[in-house]
Amino acid sequence: MIYFDNSATTKPYKEVVDSFVKVTTDFFGNPSSLHRIGGEADKLLMKARKQIADLLNIKANEIIFTSGGTESNNLAIKGAALMYKNRGKHIITTDIEHPSVRETFEQLEELGFEVTYLPVDEEGRINVADMEKAISRNTILVSVMHVNNEVGTIQPIEEIGRLLKNYPKVLFHVDHVQGVGKVPLDLNLVDLCSFSAHKFHGLKGTGLLYIHEGIQISPLLTGGGQERKYRSGTENVAGFVALAKALRMTLENEKKFLGNIVKIKETIIQGINELEEITIHTPARGSAPHIVNFSIKGFKAEVFLHALEEKDIYVSTTSACSSKKHTTSSTLLSMGVPEEIAKSAIRISLTYENTIEEAIFVVKAIKETVNKLKEVMN
């Protein structure tokens, strides 16, 4: 099997699963309980929080554990908007955000907020000058994803961060879900930042939100007051311990093997570029090392995906959150890609466990599949 759908989810590291099982079995207490078993669980939770903080160069009290990227994005955006609505009700995002951001902004529009959706160029990148023009005295929040989950475009987060330093009343949220372990991000540049463990070989149902010290947001979940009252509910101690281990291992892999994943991506692009039917949407420069998005003219994406699946190769069409809706990629349409071309888009997404040999095999399989489908159509 060749698994090239790592932007949808990654396979958990064995060590991560082992740590989850051990903590679940041996330290099952509720960390809010006052007895010894609860205290042991609480110590593990504090240790995991400290480990993550050290890995991200932030403070432990700036970490709020969540169920993943969707909850982190919702908590950051709704929490900030509701907390600071008396300052103003104007918020800014882009045309190519993940549905968990896009639909959150749409919900806030229904609640009376004014939203500016910034356009992108043909490479899927916003113009920071457009953002500066959009900022008004009523603006309270900007939310921009770091790495686009479909085409891999890297947004100019550092430039945006520097710009927003001139607007201290405007909070800056970044969806860093696709960037972790692939494209470094200095969290000192942002106010709020979302992470999801299953994108870096952790477990589904775990994630975190970075909230810069001194910033307050409104909670979405109230009750027991866990996570500094930002996210009530009994903590998933084993899941968050596993998250810390997955993050450490992934960042170690980034230091050791980033060059190799770049070579794998280059091998794929060079190989499929030889086919005249293929249009590559991922920018040649300024894109993440693990994502390649392309279209095959004249073929439906689902047909091509299943043809590769017959060869035990697993890729995707649009983002995993949108694929079952059979909708055309809004990201590609925003980039100016014609709808017929966008409908045939395929995404390959890599991780550090993939190899050059797999890339060569997949390129060969793509070429064979194109030729086979052309024969059938003719």
Rank of each mutant, 00 (worst) to 15 (best):
M1T: 15
M1A: 15
S7Q: 07
V17F: 08
F28T: 11
G38S: 07
G39P: 12
G39F: 14
G39Y: 15
E40Q: 15
D42E: 06
K43V: 09
K43T: 06
K43F: 06
A48H: 05
N57W: 04
E62V: 11
S67E: 08
K78R: 09
A81Q: 04
L82H: 09
M83Q: 10
G88L: 01
F105I: 07
Q107H: 12
Q107Y: 11
E109A: 14
G112K: 08
V120L: 00
V147C: 07
V147S: 04
N148S: 13
G152W: 05
P156W: 02
R162D: 14
R162S: 14
L164C: 09
N166G: 06
P168M: 06
V170N: 00
H173C: 05
V174M: 01
V180R: 01
G181C: 01
K182S: 02
A197G: 09
A197Y: 05
H201G: 12
G207C: 00
G214I: 08
P219H: 05
L221H: 13
T222M: 14
G224F: 10
R228S: 15
S232C: 00
G233D: 03
F240K: 06
K245C: 00
K245W: 00
L247T: 03
M249I: 11
K255W: 00
K255S: 05
I261F: 00
T267A: 09
I272M: 08
T282H: 15
S287N: 12
H290Y: 04
I296D: 02
K297V: 09
G298Q: 02
G298F: 02
I313R: 10
K325A: 13
H326M: 13
L333W: 07
S334E: 08
G336F: 02
E340Q: 10
A342D: 06
S344D: 01
A345G: 07
I348L: 03
N354C: 07
V362S: 11
E368R: 09
E375C: 12
